[in-house]
Amino acid sequence: MGETMIPVVGFVAPSGMGKTTLVRRVVAVLGDRGLRVGYLKHAHHRFDLDVPGKDSYQVREAGAQQTLLTSKARWALQVQNPVQDEDPDLYRMLSRFELDRLDLVLVEGFKHADYPKIEVHRPATGEAPLYPGDPSIIAVATDVPLEIEPPLVVLPLNTPESVADFVVSRFDEVRLRIVT
């Protein structure tokens, strides 16, 4: 077992605020800058990477606890979660990455975990912001000017370059210790 320090920044908001769109655009900007980005998404529903009817799907459905799908282009490990009524642990999931092959990890979700997060907030939706109740939120990406108490960094939601600049500028502050 070892430890790795790696920058980790999350993007949180209620569903439909544009988290995935922003993360996708920020990943493209960071990738163009030569950074190797990992992405961890917390899904609130069941999902499947495999296709019903395929061999690996049938074997997993028959009871395999872990299924490794592999090809020349990529591989994916699916592990059956033994405790399906609990949300996965952020740090345990981060430890699954090959962290030595990444420069940073962007996380979508895990809004209740204590780690550095950027909130995506669109006041026009009428949804209450998360930042007043979450001291882990270090910035708010929004589509309108905001004055926030306590003062937080406000980022332009539609300018992924600015969000990417902010993430990179905070590398030292957002490093998490991951036990691998």
Rank of each mutant, 00 (worst) to 15 (best):
D143I: 08
G133E: 14
I138C: 02
S136Y: 09
I138E: 04
E161A: 15
D172F: 05
P145E: 10
D172S: 08
A139I: 00
A141C: 08
V167P: 00
P132H: 07
A164H: 11
D165E: 15
A139N: 03
V140I: 15
I138W: 02
P135Q: 05
A141E: 04
P135D: 07
V154R: 08
V144C: 13
V163S: 04
P160D: 11
E173L: 12
L152W: 10
E149K: 12
V163N: 01
D143A: 09
S169P: 10
E147S: 14
E149T: 09
L155N: 02
V163C: 08
E161T: 12
P160L: 13
T159F: 08
V154F: 02
V167E: 06
F171V: 04
V153K: 09
I137G: 05
S162Q: 14
S162G: 11
D143R: 05
L152P: 07
F171C: 05
I137Y: 00
V168C: 10
P156T: 05
L146T: 05
L157G: 07
D143H: 08
P150K: 06
A139M: 08
S169I: 14
D143W: 06
E147P: 07
E149G: 02
P150E: 11
E147Y: 14
A139D: 00
I138M: 06
L152A: 12
D172V: 02
D165K: 14
P145Y: 08
A139H: 05
I148F: 05
D165T: 13
V168R: 12
E161D: 14
S136R: 09
R170G: 03
